[in-house]
Design a protein around this nucleic acid. Structure first.
Length: 421
DNA sequence: CGTCCACGTCTAC
DNA sequence: TAGACCTGGACGG
């Protein structure tokens, strides 16, 4: 779920489905999650949410003061003092690569539901924080992370100022595509948004950020024009920072049809919205953090050297109907591998990040553009299992090897993995 | 079956 | 600036 728009949509979802719902009892954490327990208990409480960039804050609000912590309810094991009523509590979440919220019936808890809030009335429901990769985090009594900048969606003016007033920051020594992922300045922008933003303006991703942004410091005047013309011009030609706000808004307008792998194969609206990210026919490179940047045209002066950007091979059996300028039909299955930048040396074992070795000159013929096989594979429906059946990934000492592990190590890791989240 | 890839941080050298 | 942290889909053999 997780760039700014998805976080924002999640907060809207929570506020919508939890409106009027009364929650009760304790907050349950799955065993496998390494995130902190949430020491909150109340007979009756409300849940509401707000978002800021790539964070979301849940407010747990007890309805009435007395009730909870009633001494007779023996809720003070472990020496918890039976101090007064439960106080309100804020929880701040980051979603990692796969976090999301979902309200479900109590007896149909989704897989990977790592934090659960139960309704009071039966049939009971649970608001669940799900996160299959478990990169997501939450903090008890959380506050917005200090070094994250203003939200590109909800605090646009502050966001803009924060960037333009700090152009001397070393963050802007980086290529623009990397600066855009810096949450200190671009809180809410992630990998698909940066590609789409740069692509709309045809800005080479590896142009220096400061160079790109300095040009925005003083909006260009067009003295001859009437006010309404200026307004129109501005509206029709948003600059980079405006797009950091407007493109997330576009995704938000798609609503639940936005980026949501839960319904893979059903992401037509979002895929149609994308013009660059992971699109057949666009190029890609790894940035210095190992993240794939998708683009068209020139990579720009700070592009990693020795790398060649490869085009993703265009979709083969294009619907003739769809060839209109606007409606380029996307391959329904995007093969990410097809487009990758570099040829892979046949089997160098270690190949992480942007650090591939460059074995000699590009060998254009063998390489790259493999055809994305649009093989539609039947999706095995992942059934709900009890979240309790989740088991720790690799018991104790966790996979110490690099991700790019050898086959043997991988096999070992797999076999060690207990099968049953 | 094995390999590579994914909407993101974190923290340890 | 590399890994670590995770699961699982897609693809190749």
């Amino acid at each position: 779920m997780p760039e700014g728009p998805e976080l924002h949509l999640a907060s809207c979802y929570i506020n919508r489905v939890c409106a009027g719902l009364i929650f009760s009892g304790k907050v349950e954490k799955s065993k496998v999650s390494k995130n902190p327990e949430v020491p909150f208990e109340s007979d009756e409480y409300l849940i509401s949410a707000t978002s800021r960039g790539k964070e979301i804050k849940l407010a747990l609000m007890p309805l009435k003061e007395e009730e909870n912590m009633h001494p007779s309810r023996g809720r003070d094991k472990a020496g918890q003092s039976q101090n007064g009523p439960q106080q309100p509590m804020d929880l701040v979440f980051r979603f990692g690569m796969s976090g999301s919220f979902k309200l479900t019936p109590e007896d149909e808890l989704p897989k990977h539901a790592h934090l659960r809030f139960y309704t009071k009335e039966s049939p009971r429901q649970a608001l669940c924080f799900t996160d299959f990769r478990r990169f997501g985090r939450w903090e008890v009594h959380g506050t917005w992370q200090l070094d994250r900048g203003p939200c590109v969606i909800l605090e646009y003016e502050k966001f803009r100022e924060n960037v333009l007033r700090n152009l001397s920051d070393k963050a802007f020594n980086r290529p623009i595509c990397e600066a855009l992922l810096n949450q200190k300045f671009f809180n809410g922008i992630g990998n698909y948004l940066r590609a789409e933003i740069l692509h709309r303006l045809k800005i080479p991703p590896f142009e220096k950020a400061r160079t790109v942004l300095e040009a925005l410091q003083h909006r260009k005047q067009s003295p001859g024009l009437t006010l309404s013309k200026k307004v129109k011009l501005k509206r029709e030609n948003p600059d980079l920072l405006e797009l950091c706000h407007l493109l997330p808004l576009e995704v938000i307008r798609l609503g639940r049809k936005g980026y949501d792998p839960e319904r893979s194969g059903n992401n037509a609206a979002f895929e149609k919205w994308l013009r660059c990210y992971s699109i057949p026919g666009t190029k890609s490179l790894r940035d210095s953090n190992g993240r794939t940047i998708w683009f068209q045209g020139e990579p720009g002066p700070m592009a990693p050297k020795g790398k060649k950007s490869r085009k993703r091979s265009p979709k083969v059996n294009a619907d003739p109907e769809a060839l209109g300028p606007k409606v380029k039909k996307l391959a329904s299955k995007r093969s990410l591998k097809a487009s990758t930048t570099q040829e892979k040396e046949p089997k160098s074992s270690g190949r992480k990040k942007g650090k591939e070795l460059f074995p000699g000159p590009e060998n254009t013929k063998t390489n790259g553009a493999r055809k994305p096989k649009v093989r539609s594979r039947r999706k095995v429906s992942a059934n709900q299992e009890s979240p309790k059946s989740e088991a720790p990934a690799a018991g104790g000492k966790r996979q110490a090897l690099a991700q790019r592990s050898t086959g043997a190590a991988t096999a070992a890791r797999r076999s060690r993995r207990v099968k049953a989240e």
